[in-house]
C-alpha cells in the first residue's frame, strides 16, 4: 500500500499512460517546464522529453484544435486546460468538432482525445476560476464526461478514458488535490460506465459526484446520528449517466437528494431529477430535492464563497426535508 494524494494519483495515472502508450502525449499551458499549474505533470518533461510533454501558447482554442487534429491523425492526445472557465474559449472546437466528427463523417473519423481540466470552487479564486461547468458539457452529444471524486479514481480514470475511441473530458476538482488515501501499488483501470455506491443506506439516496462527494459523505454521517440511514451514490460518469444505479437506489429508499456544485437552473441535477421522476414516479414518497450552488458568479470573499456552495449542513437539511417525520 502507498499513501497518495489526489494530485500525486493524477500524476501517477498520467505517467503510467505516457509510458505504456507511445501514441499518447500531454499538451497544454505550462504542463512542461513549469510542471502544470496544479503541479500534476511535475517531472514528466524531464523524464519523457518535449515530444511527449508539450508546452503550448496561451490559446485554448488552438491547442484543443491541435489535439483534435492529432487524434484524427492516429495519436492519443491528453490536453490539459488550466480550469474549466478557460475551456469556454475552446468550446467551439470541443462541441462543433471533437463531439461531432464521428457522426458527421459516418464513422470514418474518430477523435480519441482526452481533455483534463480543473473544476470547482473552495479556494477563493473568485468569478473566473471557480465554476463547475461540467453539467454544460453533459448536454453535448458525442462527449463522455468523467468526474473522479476519489484518489483511486483520480489515478485510474485516465487510462480508461484514453482507451475510449471518443472524446472524453475529465473534471478534476480543485478542492480535492490534497485528499489522501492508501492505494495498492500499480495503476488499475477504473470502470467508467457505472456509478458507485460509496455508502449503502435505506432512507434516502444522496446522488452526487466530484468535489461534493466528501461533503455528502459527511452529511450522511450527521444524518446517521439522527437515525437517518443515507445511501450515497458517486456518479463518476456524468455523461452517459448510469440511470439504472440511480433508479434502483431510489426505488429502495423512495427519496432522493441531488447534490451538484453547478448552478441549479439547467443543471445536471435537473436532468437527474427529471429522470427519477419519469422512471420512479410512483416509488417516490417526496419530491426530489436539489442542493446546488447559488446562482451568482462564485464570490471571492471566503464567507460568501462558502455560503454560495453546497455544504454538509444544507445537504442534511434537504435530506431531512424529504424524510420528514417518517424516520
Amino acid at each position: 500500500m502507498t499513501k497518495l494524494n489526489y494530485r500525486e494519483a493524477l500524476r501517477d495515472g498520467l505517467r503510467d499512460a505516457l509510458v505504456r502508450e507511445p501514441r499518447a502525449f500531454l499538451m497544454g499551458l505550462d504542463v512542461g517546464r513549469y510542471g502544470g499549474t496544479y503541479a500534476v505533470s511535475r517531472g514528466l518533461l524531464e523524464e519523457l522529453g518535449p515530444e511527449r510533454v508539450r508546452d503550448t501558447p496561451l490559446s485554448e482554442s488552438a491547442f484543443v484544435g491541435a489535439g483534435i487534429g492529432a487524434a484524427i491523425g492516429g495519436l492519443l492526445p491528453i490536453v490539459e486546460i488550466m480550469t474549466v472557465n478557460f475551456s469556454l474559449l475552446a468550446l467551439d472546437q470541443i462541441m462543433n468538432n471533437a463531439a461531432t466528427l464521428r457522426h458527421m463523417t459516418g464513422g470514418q473519423l474518430a477523435v480519441p482525445l482526452v481533455i483534463r481540466m480543473t473544476t470547482g470552487a473552495g479556494r477563493q479564486l473568485a468569478a473566473q476560476h471557480s465554476h463547475s461547468l461540467e453539467g454544460w458539457y453533459a448536454h453535448i452529444p458525442g462527449l463522455r464526461i468523467l468526474a473522479p471524486a476519489t484518489v483511486e479514481d483520480a489515478r485510474g480514470m485516465l487510462w480508461t478514458a484514453l482507451m475510449d475511441p471518443d472524446p472524453v473530458l475529465i473534471f478534476e476538482h480543485a478542492a480535492l488535490f490534497g485528499l489522501e488515501a492508501e492505494l495498492e501499488g500499480a495503476v488499475t483501470p477504473v470502470d467508467i460506465d457505472h456509478a458507485k455506491i460509496r455508502r449503502a443506506g435505506k432512507h434516502v439516496s444522496l446522488v452526487t459526484y466530484g468535489g461534493t462527494l466528501h461533503k455528502t459523505l459527511a452529511a450522511a454521517e450527521t444524518l446517521a446520528k439522527d437515525g437517518i440511514d443515507a445511501e450515497v451514490i458517486d456518479l463518476r460518469s456524468l455523461r452517459p449517466l448510469d440511470t439504472e444505479t440511480i433508479i434502483a437506489s431510489v426505488k429502495k429508499t423512495r427519496r432522493a437528494v441531488i447534490i451538484d456544485e453547478g448552478w441549479r437552473s439547467g443543471s445536471l441535477s435537473a436532468e437527474i431529477s427529471a429522470r427519477v421522476m419519469e422512471q420512479a414516479f410512483y416509488d417516490l414518497d417526496a419530491p426530489v430535492e436539489r442542493v446546488c450552488t447559488a446562482e451568482v458568479p462564485i464570490p471571492y470573499a471566503k464567507q460568501l464563497e462558502e455560503a454560495a456552495l453546497p455544504q454538509p449542513e444544507t445537504i442534511v437539511q434537504a435530506a431531512r426535508k424529504t424524510v420528514g417525520t417518517h424516520v
Partner: peptide, 20 residues
C-alpha cells in the same frame, strides 16, 4: 435541443418539485 440536460429537464424538475 438534445434531451439530456436540455431546458426540458429543468422545467420537469421545477414542476415536479412544486406540484408533485
Amino acid at each position: 435541443a438534445p434531451r439530456t440536460c436540455g431546458f426540458g429537464a429543468e422545467l420537469s424538475a421545477l414542476i415536479h418539485e412544486r406540484a408533485m
